[in-house]
C-alpha cells in the first residue's frame, strides 16, 4: 500500500521544455503559436520522446529485471545538458542509464526500503553504476547521498 502510494507520488515533474503533443497535431487553423513551437524545438534538439509517445508506440525495450547500484546526480548538476539534449532539472523524474532508449520509462525500486518510482530515461551514465537518478527521484526513493542498491525494470507500452 505504502509502496503504491510512493509509486504514484513519484509520478512527478518531467522535462520542462517538452511541449504538449496535442498542440502540434490538433491545431490546423492557428498560425500564432509557431513562434512558441520553434522555441521549443530548438530547446529539445533530440526528438522529444514525450511528444511521440502517445502518437507512435515507442520502440520495444528490454524489460528484464536489472539490479545494481544507483547513484544520484550532484545537486550542482541542475541545468546541465543531458545526453538526450534535454536540460537536467533536479525536480524532474529522470535518470541516466547506459543503454535503455531515451524516453523509456523505468520503475526503480530501492531494495532496502522497497520504495519505488517511475522515471524517464533521458541521459547516459558514464560511471559503472546501473542508473543515475535525479534529485527528486532519489529523494522519493529515500536513496542516500552516496547511492544504494536498486532494482530496475523498463515499462512496456500497453498493447491496444
Amino acid at each position: 500500500m505504502f509502496n503504491k502510494i510512493l509509486i504514484m507520488m513519484a509520478l512527478l515533474a518531467l522535462s520542462a521544455c517538452a511541449i504538449d503533443p496535442a498542440d502540434e497535431t490538433s491545431e490546423t487553423e492557428v498560425a500564432a503559436p509557431l513562434m512558441g513551437i520553434s522555441a521549443v524545438q530548438a530547446a529539445a534538439p533530440v526528438a522529444d520522446p514525450d511528444a511521440s509517445a502517445p502518437v507512435v508506440a515507442p520502440p520495444p525495450v528490454d524489460t528484464r529485471l536489472q539490479s545494481g547500484r544507483a547513484s544520484r546526480y550532484k545537486l550542482q548538476d541542475h541545468g546541465i545538458a543531458t545526453a538526450s539534449g534535454e536540460v537536467y532539472d533536479m525536480f524532474d523524474l529522470t535518470a541516466a542509464h547506459s543503454s535503455l532508449p531515451f524516453g523509456s520509462y523505468v520503475r526503480v525500486t530501492n531494495t532496502v526500503n522497497q520504495r519505488s518510482v517511475v522515471v524517464r530515461i533521458n541521459d547516459r551514465n558514464e560511471d559503472n553504476k546501473l542508473v543515475r537518478l535525479s534529485h527528486r527521484a532519489a529523494k522519493l526513493l529515500g536513496l542516500p547521498a552516496v547511492g544504494g542498491f536498486v532494482k530496475l525494470q523498463a515499462l512496456q507500452p500497453k498493447s491496444k
Binding site: 520542462a16 521544455c17 517538452a18 511541449i19 504538449d20 498542440d23 502540434e24 491545431e27 492557428v30 500564432a32 503559436p33 513562434m35 512558441g36 513551437i37 522555441a39 521549443v40 530547446a43 550542482q76 541542475h78 541545468g79 546541465i80 536540460v87 537536467y88 532539472d89 533536479m90 524532474d92
Partner: peptide
C-alpha cells in the same frame, strides 16, 4: 502562448 514551455532548468 500556445506550445511554448513554462520553465527550463538553468545554471
Amino acid at each position: 502562448i500556445r506550445g511554448e514551455p513554462i520553465i527550463v532548468a538553468a545554471r
